[in-house]
C-alpha cells in the first residue's frame, strides 16, 4: 500500500428523522437493507475505501441522528466535513422543505468549500411520492449542490451516488485530462472506526 496517494474526506449524512441515512450507509457498506427501523443514537462512524487509479480515497462517513434531541450536537458533527449528504424522503414533503435549513447549517459551518449532495431517498415508494424529482433538481441547483434520487431498499443509485461523489472529489484534487477520463473504481470496504479532523 502506497502511503502517498491516500485522500481522506470527512463526510457527514444529515436530514430529518427516518429519511434513510443509516440505510443508505448500510446499502453502501454491506449491500444490505434492514426493514426494521432503528434510530441512530447520536452519531455512528464508517469508512468506505475506494480505489481510483493509483489513488486511495477514504470516505469517513459520519451518520448522524435525525432525532430532534440530538439537534444541538449537529453543528459539532458538521464541523470539519468535506462532504455533506443531505437526505430527504420523497414521500415526506416536510423532510424536503427542511433540506434548505440543513444546507444552511452546513454552509454556516463550512462555507462554500464543502461539497453538498442532496439525496431524495425511497424512490421504491414512487406511488406515494410527494416530492417530484424536478423540485429536488431545482433546489439543488439553487443551493449549488449535486442532486440524485436513490433507494436504499432496492439499492438503486446508491453506489452510483457515492461513485459520483468520489469522482468529483478526485477530479477536484487531481485534475483529470480529457484523454484519461475512463477510470476504474474498485470498491473495498473497511469498517473499523476512524475519523478525520483534517
Amino acid at each position: 500500500m502506497s502511503l502517498q496517494n491516500i485522500l481522506k474526506y470527512k463526510t457527514v449524512l444529515l436530514g430529518e428523522i427516518s429519511v434513510g441515512k443509516t440505510s443508505l450507509i448500510s446499502r453502501l457498506m454491506y449491500d444490505k437493507f434492514d426493514d426494521s427501523y432503528q434510530a441512530t443514537i447520536g452519531i455512528d462512524h464508517f469508512i468506505k475505501t475506494m480505489y481510483l487509479g493509483d489513488t486511495t480515497i477514504k470516505l469517513q462517513l459520519w451518520d448522524t441522528a435525525g432525532q430532534e434531541r440530538f439537534r444541538s450536537l449537529i453543528p459539532t458533527f458538521i464541523r470539519n466535513s468535506r462532504v455533506a449528504i443531505v437526505v430527504y424522503d420523497i414521500t415526506n414533503r416536510s423532510s424536503f422543505t427542511k433540506v434548505n435549513s440543513w444546507v444552511r447549517d452546513v454552509r454556516n459551518e463550512c462555507g462554500e468549500d464543502i461539497k453538498v449532495v442532496i439525496i431524495g431517498n425511497k424512490v421504491d415508494m414512487d406511488s406515494s411520492r410527494k416530492v417530484w424529482p424536478e423540485e429536488g433538481e431545482e433546489l439543488a441547483t439553487k443551493l449549488n449542490a449535486i442532486f440524485m434520487e436513490t433507494s436504499a431498499k432496492t439499492g438503486s443509485n446508491v453506489q452510483a451516488m457515492f461513485k459520483k461523489i468520489v469522482m468529483d472529489l478526485y477530479e477536484q484534487k487531481v485534475p483529470v485530462k480529457e484523454t484519461s477520463t475512463h477510470l476504474n473504481i474498485n470498491y473495498v470496504t473497511t469498517s473499523v472506526g476512524s475519523s478525520c479532523a483534517c
Binding site: 462512524h45 469508512i47 472506526g193 476512524s194 479532523a197
Partner: peptide, 8 residues
C-alpha cells in the same frame, strides 16, 4: 474523532 482515528 481523534479517539476513533487513533483506534483505527
Amino acid at each position: 474523532q481523534a479517539c476513533i482515528a487513533e483506534y483505527e
